[in-house]
Write a protein that binds this DNA or RNA. Sequence first.
DNA 1: ATCCTACATTGGACTAAGTCCAAGTCAAGA
DNA 2: TCTTGACTTGGACTTAGTCCAATGTAGGAT
Lengths: 138, 138
Amino acid sequence: MSDLLDRLRDRGWRLTAQRRVVAEVLDGDHVHYTADEVHARAAGRLPEIARATVYNTLSELVAIGEVREVSTDGRAKRYDPNTRHTHQHLVCEKCGTIRDVHPQGDPVAALPEAERYGFAIQDAVVTYRGTCPDCARG
Amino acid sequence: MSDLLDRLRDRGWRLTAQRRVVAEVLDGDHVHYTADEVHARAAGRLPEIARATVYNTLSELVAIGEVREVSTDGRAKRYDPNTRHTHQHLVCEKCGTIRDVHPQGDPVAALPEAERYGFAIQDAVVTYRGTCPDCARG
DNA sequence: ATCCTACATTGGACTAAGTCCAAGTCAAGA
DNA sequence: TCTTGACTTGGACTTAGTCCAATGTAGGAT
């Protein structure tokens, strides 16, 4: 985590208490909070933090590539701090749980030239949809 | 298109003027309108149609599998009437244009058992992101 | 150690996308 | 043609997110 703070400082970021707690909240594996969830957790440590600040900070983290924006369900966007290793997502249709997964091969290679319509393709986002073990039991 | 109306009638739908124009708007290839775009086009033919009716009709069409809901960008959902042939989407990052594409192979097969976390996987949604020829020239 | 100031934060108003509901309308079967 | 339950309406409401003027402060300059 402190390495993230270091990277931010290297970029000339002012290290405010607010940015610190947002960065702390976004620490860990399989973390995919919505902006409101980040705000709620950040407010646990720094009660007066404003929603606008959380949105600002998240947008900045996305802009510099430290956090990925994920919109799996057309509802609130989620923020994924794991940008070190490229990965895709596995989502439970019932409860919305998200796991990071690593499929084999390159999905971009599966798209034939004739299907590219002259686009310069940058990447492919894959979302696996299914039912998690907990929901299957329920 | 009238085959869609037939299928709806077979399901016991009341064929109102409103449902008719929504179905007509959603006719064609590479159609991916937002709810508001559907409403605007429908209102061209039936000026008094309410937004709520368009939302209702779209939800029903999605529920019975005649239309697919697509959320590529975390903004408004788009509605895709092409559900006969499974396909994925190619999106231009700049202008938002969407094309239907047909990648080779089954993306679900690319996910190793060890990466499935006990989920029962139903399908995979793939979004190719890139820049379309028009935007590349601009 | 303190001062400055450009950058950051705040909170409240605003927008976009979508949902909900009570009252009115109408498609289609009897 | 009548009836009725399904459908539509429009406006209020919710959720997610953006914007902005006023205020605060991190960190370099002195």
